[in-house]
Design a protein around this nucleic acid. Structure first.
Lengths: 210, 210, 210, 210
DNA sequence: GATGAATGAGTCTTCATTCAT
DNA sequence: TATGAATGAAGACTCATTCAT
């Protein structure tokens, strides 16, 4: 029923991003999005099943393309450490270039209902898979510690990137996200600790015995 | 106007947590919360300015107590590294003990409108301050690297804890969060990298020059 | 949930009858009915589950009372023939006295959706039962022919009354329905035929053999 | 503008009957009928002024042919009593042979708006004229009582047939309508009463004097 | 003649909040 | 203090109809 391609399809999605970013999720009425896209209200329903479907499509369309970009970019790099940096660089670059999209995905779309968030989660899962692949390679290639729990590390990476972007938006997008790539990358690889790993391991064991 | 104490004040907040956790944010009507709290709809407005105020109060009331707990607990520990572990331990423990509260703060309250999220942000800032204090101490005491950017590290820590809890809830609270304290603590302190810090530094510099 | 009694309950039902009779089923918006009843739109939903429920209630409320009236009136009469006349008299009287109600039940409510018509059908069934009882008594008392099929006779009686009222409305309620009680009653009892029953029976048999 | 003949004209009407019978009046969208007729939505407007016109045409086309059939059939019979039986027989036969058409005319089309029902009424009037003619002949030929009011008798006849068919559909078209021709015909001619007409006349006069 | 993408008017229902008691 | 009946604003979606091709 719903035609998921075409000029108007793109126009509606782009209009939705603008309207949601500028008015907030709860003030993004279908009629407002239609007006912004220069189509009739009913036209939206020729391209999307309903409003939820439009929001999910919006996210998947943009996020899907981003994931593809990340996959291709990381494939061109050998070292998992550099792949991770590339992923971070692209993650920040993509949102820094599209602050409206950033607002929509980081802030507004999180207010959506269960249905929308589930639709989003599926695509997000694919991004997690990309991160997982990098971590796994790193472990296999002996770049990352063999005892790193992939899921734990993935949550650290995604959680940090996500929180960093949200903070950036909440503070008005005033500074450059790109400047944070290296500091964060360093934190991921080396941690905050100053001591040599060996010593810290000993410390950790002491804790474990306590 | 709004009386911010009393038996019914607490009853309403606790009822709100139960109702939101069980029905979801968008199905937590004032009348449903009133019924659960065994008061009349109008009574809620004797204790709260409006629904937003009730949700903000709910968060601040619970989060404020938690922050106090964390402050006290970390004050009893010397090493910033151990303070960080303690914070993580309490963070996970608190939410693992109150899954309903966890669902409300991690999932449902994020669907709230701008006003509520701003009210929440103020209290959250205090939690960030606690984290900042720990990092600052660590740097000052020479436990953490002096070139660690406090804000960057804080976002890593909070982002990771947040993502970890959200994941845990999304997966049905099936495993124990407490098991993740040490692996995450280790990641924060030592990073994922296998090489010695010195070598890794060199590597990092090479990257920087590239 | 829905409070099915009270002053406002009656006011809404009466307003609905007026609005539907004057504007037609498809132009009887909830907001128009609310305004006519001098209540807020939302108030209607304190007394009815939804618009369908309101229409079904309207019919059942009025029809239920009518059926009760008919039951009581026919109970005060001995002869099934007179009971039938009494039913017809009340049927016509009730609608002649409330032309708006007549328009609503005979014309407008028939345009309603499946749900409403099913809700109406249940109550209508009770009216059919009253007719059936009269016919059955008539047969048992030897007033009506023993070979009369109750269902067939009931459909004749109800169909005739219904068509008579619909015709009357379609022609602008210009003549008196009450004048038709006796002619119709006579038709029901004696039929249109001029010949003696015996002769006609013979005729009928001849037909049956043909 | 509207071309009222042709292959597609018939195809659209037949598609409309199927779609309405299967989906109900309120779910018989123009686009659904167009799809069923294997034409484009816009094509329907080359053959009909609008949707109402299509429904009215549908009824008139089919009902007009039926009335013609009845006129011809009754013309081949002498006795008005037999003419009446023939009309009933054809009425039931026609609908029993086309249950979809029966559903459309007896149930679904009655939910239509004022305009459609008025368009239908005109054709229905012609059917009433056929019934009137039979009754008039019967009276003139001394077969029916001279004091029978033609309009009253016509409403009894039509109302009974109509209610009988509606009942039959509502009960799932499980029994044969044809079996009811003779019982109903007998009721029309002889009535339900057991007593001799003379006695009943006396009774009736007593009523009339009351 | 035929198409079908595009149009846009129209409405039921929810629920936070109030206020007379 | 407490009640809860009443309020009324606000929005997603459908579908008959048009018209450029």
């Amino acid at each position: 029923m719903a035609k998921r391609t075409g000029e108007k399809y793109e126009a509606i999605i782009d209009a939705a991003i603008r309207v949601i970013a500028e008015n907030g999720y709860h003030n993004a009425q279908v009629s407002k999005i239609a007006r912004e896209a220069k189509v009739a209200d009913g036209t939206i329903y020729l391209y999307f099943e309903n409003k939820d479907d439009m929001l999910i499509s919006l996210f998947n369309e943009k996020m899907g393309a981003f994931i593809e970009t990340v996959r291709e970019a990381t494939a061109r790099v050998d070292s998992p450490s550099d792949q991770l940096r590339e992923l971070m660089r692209l993650h920040f670059a993509q949102l820094e270039e599209n602050p409206k999209m950033a607002i929509v995905t980081q802030i507004e779309l999180r207010q959506s209902n269960r249905k929308v968030r589930q639709g989003i989660a599926e695509t997000l899962k694919k991004y997690m898979d990309v991160i997982d692949d990098i971590i796994r390679s790193g472990i296999e290639q002996g770049i990352f510690r063999p005892d790193v729990d992939i899921r734990v590390a993935r949550r650290m990476i995604f959680g940090t990137l996500d929180e960093t972007v949200t903070s950036w938006i909440m503070n008005g997008c005033k500074y450059s996200l790109m400047d944070q790539v290296d500091p964060i990358h360093r934190l991921f690889l080396d941690g905050m600790g100053k001591e040599a790993p060996l010593q810290r391991d000993a410390h950790s064991e002491k804790e474990g015995n306590a």
